[in-house]
């Protein structure tokens, strides 16, 4: 299996590998969808969080199938490793079990359905309008090595990169200010 090596020639001509790839794609996406459903349907918030973790891991696996091992590692690092741990932390600290059984919005069923339907409509129209439906992004990440990604980030995308880091810094400082009580020190 040469899935993890971004340099391998690919695309166009069907090989023995591409069939296997499809099997893996079906496996990963099926688990991802199942897990995503569990996130919504599970009663216990901790179970939901875990299912979300499984879902994110499957997405990372899909990134590897798309020849972007770097994105996959970052996905695991940031989403599964950091964000999910914080989720679980909060859920456990607040002992959310009792609260979660009660409805978040008492009489909110119809508005919720409406908004959900709107979102679904938007998603479907986006999907149908996209040219990615016909052509898979085959060679997008083929040549991206970590070094190249870094160079791009610090030359071509320097401004967005800096803006994002400043925003993150502001969020960080904001969180500290919010947590710090008056006269605590």
């Amino acid at each position: 299996m040469t899935v993890s090596e971004p340099g391998t020639p690919r695309a166009g001509q069907p090989k023995a590998g591409s069939e296997m790839e499809q099997v893996f794609f079906l496996l990963f996406s099926a688990i991802a969808v199942g897990a995503a459903l569990t996130v919504v349907l599970a009663r216990d918030p901790v179970h939901s969080a875990l299912a979300l973790m499984v879902c994110l891991l499957q997405v990372a696996a899909l990134f590897i199938l798309l020849r972007s091992p770097f994105l996959a590692a970052v996905q695991v690092f940031v989403y599964v490793g950091a964000v999910m741990v914080l989720f679980l932390f909060v859920i456990m600290m607040l002992d959310i079990r009792q609260v979660a059984i009660e409805r978040f919005l008492p009489r909110g069923r119809i508005p919720t359905l409406l908004v959900l339907g709107l979102l679904a409509l938007q998603l479907v129209s986006l999907l149908l309008g996209s040219r990615l439906v016909d052509e898979a992004p085959d060679r997008v990440a083929e040549a991206t090595t970590v070094a190249e990604l870094g160079t791009r980030l610090f030359t071509h995308y320097l401004l967005p990169f800096e803006v994002v880091s400043v925003i993150l810094l502001v969020a960080l400082v904001g969180a500290i200010v919010l947590v710090r009580r008056e006269g605590a020190e």
């Binding site: 091992p69 770097f70 690092f77 741990v85």
Partner: peptide, 24 residues
């Protein structure tokens, strides 16, 4: 893997889930 080191750091981080789950 070309991103071996990053992969290792990312996956080690997952180990903490077992501990949290066990505790909870």
């Amino acid at each position: 893997l070309n991103i071996g080191l990053l992969f290792i750091l990312a996956v080690i981080g997952l180990e903490v889930f077992g501990v949290i789950l066990a505790g909870w």
